[in-house]
Design a protein around this nucleic acid. Structure first.
Length: 402
DNA sequence: TCTGGGGTCCTAGGACCC
DNA sequence: TCTGGGGTCCTAGGACCC
């Protein structure tokens, strides 16, 4: 039987939510209506565009590009800081509305949800009417706009919500694939990024339709498994389910771009410790154990390098994780200046009940130790490596995969 | 003054075992 | 003297997403 899937996508999410919050706090200007971006702090070398207004987009400003470039494109660009605590509140408010339409809502990211409404369409209503109702209610009740895609599966619903923006509802039914999707450049297809695009173009594939009408075998031959996926997407084939249960993470990591390049091993290890504290704390919050520990560095000329190690026994102990991380780092780090360091815990498995109760009693102690370590670091270096707000952000981001 | 941080998934090559 | 092949696990790196 044909499914009825919706994809709800907040228009310029971080920017819209910042705008609504500013208006709520008495601002007289709606930053959605001027050239503006949400961006990181350039002084801390985190100066990239996280979200842009539509007027900013008209200057050719792109998400994830350096703010330095964005300012060159638009000298009077207004730049605002992100606030993930606020974003989480708006995201939750939207989620609560969506849950009134079906119990099958998947949070795909902080600003995107899939809904399977197949079994939840009231008599006398259509999927399209529900999509419009959702679009209206979010605008009226929460003050920001969303695009809604209506389709028989997730990939088509997602492609549909990406059509014209903002504040629009689009359908992409099976009989509309060729007329609405095949004429788009292949770069617009979900999962086609900047590496695979030139390869596709070399094969003479310029539009999604070009890809759809090639032989599947040819794509598999050139791209392997990935070729099968994008060929199926181009043809609107996707049987994946809307998953309402939040899955336990497959890996947990924290990394930080340093305000200045660092080559002093002692200082780098101090940062690594702070990152370990944070990551291990999150691991325990999920009641998981880590099977492998990995350390990543990025040199000042943007060369990435990572090493990992499988532990004899999975653990959630900050001490054990840090000892391993430190050893891994010392094995492969050769004193070149680095701009980023990160830690990643992988091959996660559930903690058994005995261990959970053990950690429950130690939770407060661990938390205060964490706070103390971070405080000491800040005093010592004056770096804003891990601020209180930064810690909140990390907690938020973890839950939303953003 | 140029380039974040959180993830998922895939691949290639080597070690090791039978 | 010459030198298999299948399978699993591990590691490093990379593509892609928001």
């Amino acid at each position: 039987m044909e499914r009825k899937i919706l994809h709800v996508d907040v228009n310029s999410a971080f920017l819209s939510w910042t705008a609504v919050e500013m208006l709520k706090n008495g601002s007289t200007v709606d930053i959605r209506e001027i050239p503006s971006v949400i961006g990181g702090d350039e002084e801390k070398r985190k100066g990239i565009v996280l979200a842009k207004s539509i007027p900013a987009k008209k200057y050719g400003i792109k998400t994830a590009e350096p703010i330095y470039f964005a300012k060159q494109k638009c000298p009077n660009l207004q730049i605002f800081k992100s606030n993930f605590k606020i974003y989480r509140q708006y995201s939750n408010a939207m989620y609560n509305i969506l849950c009134q339409y079906t119990n099958r809502v998947e949070r795909f990211s902080i600003d995107e949800c899939f809904l399977d409404i197949t079994e939840f369409i009231p008599k006398g209503k259509t999927d399209l009417q529900i999509a419009y109702e959702i679009n209206h209610r979010i605008k009226q009740e929460l003050g920001f706009t969303v695009n809604v895609g209506v389709a028989p599966n997730k990939i088509l619903a997602k492609m549909a919500s990406d059509f014209e923006k903002p504040d629009k509802v689009h359908t992409l039914y099976a009989n509309e694939i060729s007329s609405k999707m095949w004429n788009l450049p292949v770069s617009e297809l979900f999962m086609v990024g900047k590496r695979s695009l030139p390869k596709l173009e070399r094969l003479g594939i310029k539009t999604i339709g070009d890809l759809a009408n090639r032989k599947k075998e040819e794509m598999v031959k050139v791209f392997g498994k990935f070729g099968k996926t994008i060929w199926e997407y181009a043809n609107g084939i996707d049987f994946s389910e809307v998953i309402s249960e939040p899955e336990t993470p497959k890996c947990i990591g924290n990394s930080v771009t340093l305000p200045k390049d660092l080559s002093d091993l002692f200082k780098i290890e101090e940062v690594l410790l702070a990152l370990t504290e944070q990551t291990a704390y999150r691991l325990r919050k999920h009641q998981l154990l880590a099977g492998t520990v990995g350390v990543q560095i990025r040199t000042k000329d943007f060369q990435n390098c990572s090493h990992q190690r499988t532990l004899l026994t999975p653990t959630s102990s900050t001490k054990i994780i840090y000892e391993n991380a430190k050893q891994i780092l010392e094995e492969f780090y050769h004193r070149e200046p680095i701009r980023l360091i990160g830690i990643k815990l992988d091959h996660l498995k559930p903690t058994d009940n005995l261990q959970i109760s053990l950690f429950d009693t130690k939770q407060n102690e661990k938390q205060s130790k964490l706070d103390k370590t971070i405080d000491n670091l800040k005093e010592k270096y004056g770096y804003n490596i891990i601020t209180r707000a930064g810690k909140m952000e990390t907690d938020d981001m973890m839950e939303f995969k953003e």
